[in-house]
Design a protein around this nucleic acid. Sequence first.
RNA 1: GCCGAAGUGGCGGAAUUGGCAGACGCACUUGACUCAAAAUCAAGCGUGGUUGACCCCACGUGGGGGUUCGAGUCCCCCCUUCGGCACCA
Length: 833
Amino acid sequence: MQEKYAFHLIEPKWQKRWEEDGLYNVDRRGNRPKLYCLEMFPYPSGDLHMGHVRNYSLGDSVARYYRMRGYDVLHPIGWDAFGLPAENAAIKRGIHPADWTEQNIANMRQQMHRLGFSYDWRREVATCRPDYYKWTEWMFLLLYKRGLAYKAAAKVNWCPSCATVLANEQVVNGACWRCHTPVEQRQLEQWFFRITAYAEQLLEDLRMLTDWPERVKVMQANWIGKSEGAEVTFTVEGTGQEITVFTTRPDTLFGVTYLVLAPENPLVEELAAGKPEAVAVRRLAAEAARVAARQRTEQEKIGVPTGAWAINPVNGERVPIWVANYVVMEYGTGAVMGVPAHDQRDFEFARKFGLPVRVVIQPQDGPVPEEGEDLEAAYEGPGTLVNSGSFDGLPWEEGKKRITAWLQEHGAGKPQVQYRLRDWLISRQRYWGAPIPLIYCDHCGTVPVSENDLPVLLPRNVDFRPGGPSPLARCPEFVNTTCPRCGRPARRETDTMDTFMCSSWYYLRYASPHDDQAPFQPADVDYWLPVDQYIGGIEHAVMHLLYSRFLTKVLYDAGLVKFREPFQRLFTQGMVTLGGSAMSKSKGNIVDPNDIVAKYGADTARVFTLFAAPPERDLEWSEQGVEGAYRFLNRVWRLAYELEPLVRQPRGGRAQGGNDPSAWPKEDRELRRLLHATVKKVGQDIGERFMHNTAISSIMELVNALYDYRQNVPPERQNAVLLREALQKLLLILAPFAPYITEEIWHQLGWEGSIHLQPWPQWDEAALAAEEVTVVVQVNGKVRDRLVLPADTPEEVLRQKALQLPKIQPFLAGRTVDKVVSVPGRLVNIVVH
RNA sequence: GCCGAAGUGGCGGAAUUGGCAGACGCACUUGACUCAAAAUCAAGCGUGGUUGACCCCACGUGGGGGUUCGAGUCCCCCCUUCGGCACCA
């Protein structure tokens, strides 16, 4: 065996060999359990960054572990390859997006090879290739046919920097999720997916996801934003028009002292027309229109009366109708009933504009002033109905039900559930995306492209110069076509799909990556899906993960898949930081994985990223920590080098006491116990706990124990059988984390076959029981001494020995022993006073 | 404001079921090897007190209270940090 750990020679050698042997290719066989381990596929930006290294190292160790445990492991990778940076490269550097993307893919694929990730490369997909986006278009048509795709004019989020619209999920704090430019509101006609039709299921099925992080489920639930309440219909005095409001507090209906409409509500103009208030109303509406709905939060509440009045259905009272900027058109009905006594926003508004405040809920304890005019703030808590006619005295929850029922009986309302979720806007005014497969015909209207004509190909020669309509709209060869229905000249849709559409179904494609008849074969998907373990960043908690869940449910309803949820277990890993913040080009705090691999090797990079922090937390990059990981691998190498003569002895060498471990000396039995305990723990840490950091630390402890044994046991007494077993198992459990060095040592020591095809080592449960235990002796809960005893010492003997310990005596002198608590194998606690 | 997660040495973190707090690693200190350095190996390394030394004692997991023989872990209150949602009626 070589004396030096020459990673730079070892790693390229095995990389090539594994690839030639197709070591990680997997096919549907069915005679072994399957496991689908998936990491979120990357955008091919050009280079892997440390976040990728961490994400893929995590997934790879899981995949390798289960492979060794006898599973057929589907572990694929691909490229989320449509998107704006490719188009920007075209604009800035004159390189075509397709070429730019393919070059980046080639480079990143090479980096992944160097890192030794165990992918089945035959299954690689790229969303920008026609053989993939053909099926993205197919998915669009599926939604279209099922009535889940529609075109509508709406006020939408526009990113001026990306020159395209964005979905609500893609606006973060009022800015574009990708480039952080503040978004603007624009009135445009766009394509939407009716994700709101699945709001209830998307919310309800979160319960099934018991192996998802709580915070992701909470974020999705918040995003869906379910509210239960009632719709109440008010009549406009004089005209008989109706204004419907949504409220979660029908129990406060007797407390209504005004109505408010959103400035964009079309009723506003109707109501004010011809009245003296019309000028002020129009001015307010115009003012509000200038401010994006999402930025209104910081605005002062402003409002004006419309001059119209409404009749409260429950008591026939006249209340004024106002317009105010604190009501949003996009939620509910764009109209709200004002109950200042029991809603803080209404309270502030009423105080500012001198509207009356009427108390209709009395809390159980501590009276709220009966006269609303004395209130200092709205009372929003529970209580009993007052000033509410025949409903007086009801508990509020009961009041909600009874008043809603009354409204329903009298045709003035009904129970209503509202969701905050909006439909998914999928049009993008960009070139580098999957075309929306629709044709507009002057005679036939909107006509979907026939499935047989898919894919609608992106034309290669387009004009990328910025400004004006999107490149596709400026490409007559693309735009001009014939109507599939009537054959007359027609125009293609020139918007492309949101790239989140491409990534919302890719995990299905890996099952049948090259099928040209269907997006996937049922037999493949039924076998491999759902994904058993999905790993990625938290940033996709409500974007990618929500869209993928939605699409899966649509496919389920269409009978195309047999599962309702695509990702069984989800793990969200933390960021890689340097100087406390995420690595980014703009901050200039980048560590290039290429440099680390060149300097220390891929195994070191992998071991460091897995060891330095628990996977879910942020990982602060540390060059010294990397050196620590490198030192550890060198210690493993040296250990193997030193043990080689022992390992290679004919018939495995000798062991004092023969091959029966129970006859071995104590040091041998102790080392064997640690070995077997470590094998068990590492398996649990990867498979059950997802704590790769503690898995590696326990392997380090094993290595340390082996060094101690070598140093402390005289050479002639060292147990070759044990050391051989220990080294072999050590390599096997380290293999998922450090695939190169373990493979190399495995072969240098003369063991057969790839280490990565070996079964996970067995552990002997009987070997785990320590023969001797250290029992802590406490007095009043404080540790005063320790006893080392055989593990099977009877509890009575244990207590006796503890009470007789010399160090204990001073603490017992002059005191009475109340009781003695003992836990065999752990402690004795003597309670005195 | 509502919801969620977290808070442990100089640093990253461990403690899986209520049972020795600080595993493992980094940094640091000392020693061995060396002409020297690097590498490697060995020892030490929570805070305070005490001692010639060994020992020993007290305190210690964001703060305060509680349950328990025993709390980093369970309960209540509070503080801080991070994340999500937010005039959503």
